[in-house]
Deep mutational scan, measured.
Amino acid sequence: TRVETATETAWISLVTALHLVLGLSAVLGLLLLRWQFPAHYRRLRHALW
């Protein structure tokens, strides 16, 4: 049971790290898009909202 718990903890930390990385890359990508294509971003936002 001790090994299982350790594996579970490792998986949880791995998944958390993955989610953090994905979230950060998504935010960075959005910022980059907004910085590179302001007109396109505004049009996209206008279409979405």
Rank of each mutant, 00 (worst) to 15 (best):
T1F: 12
T1E: 11
T1S: 12
T1W: 10
R2G: 10
R2S: 12
V3Y: 02
E4Q: 13
E4Y: 13
E4P: 06
E4F: 13
T5Q: 00
A6C: 06
A6D: 06
T7R: 14
E8D: 09
E8P: 09
E8T: 11
T9Y: 08
T9E: 11
T9G: 11
A10M: 06
A10K: 11
A10Y: 04
A10W: 02
A10H: 06
W11K: 04
W11M: 06
I12Q: 08
I12H: 07
I12W: 00
I12L: 10
S13Y: 12
S13I: 14
S13P: 04
S13M: 14
S13F: 15
L14T: 05
L14K: 02
L14W: 00
L14S: 01
L14P: 04
L14A: 02
V15L: 07
V15F: 01
V15A: 09
V15R: 04
V15W: 01
T16V: 12
T16P: 04
T16W: 08
A17W: 05
A17E: 01
L18Y: 03
L18F: 14
L18K: 03
H19N: 05
H19Y: 04
L20G: 08
L20V: 12
L20M: 10
L20Q: 05
V21T: 14
V21A: 15
V21H: 00
V21F: 13
V21D: 02
V21P: 06
L22F: 02
L22M: 13
L22S: 13
L22W: 03
G23N: 05
G23A: 14
G23R: 02
L24W: 07
L24K: 06
L24P: 08
L24R: 00
S25P: 01
A26Y: 03
A26C: 12
A26P: 02
A26H: 04
V27F: 12
G29L: 14
G29D: 05
G29Y: 01
L30N: 04
L30S: 08
L31K: 07
L31D: 03
L31H: 07
L31V: 10
L31C: 15
L31P: 06
L32G: 01
L32V: 14
L32E: 03
L32R: 06
L32W: 09
L33Y: 02
L33F: 08
L33T: 02
L33M: 09
L33N: 07
R34I: 06
R34W: 05
R34C: 06
W35D: 10
Q36F: 08
Q36T: 15
Q36W: 15
Q36N: 15
F37S: 01
F37R: 04
F37K: 00
P38Q: 14
P38C: 02
P38M: 14
P38I: 13
A39W: 11
A39Y: 11
A39H: 12
H40A: 13
H40D: 00
H40T: 10
H40F: 08
H40S: 09
Y41D: 06
Y41I: 11
R42S: 14
R42H: 10
R42A: 14
R42P: 00
R43W: 06
R43T: 12
R43Q: 09
L44M: 10
L44P: 07
R45D: 01
R45I: 06
H46T: 07
A47R: 13
L48R: 08
L48W: 07
L48D: 11
L48F: 05
L48V: 10
L48G: 01
L48Y: 03
W49S: 02
W49V: 00
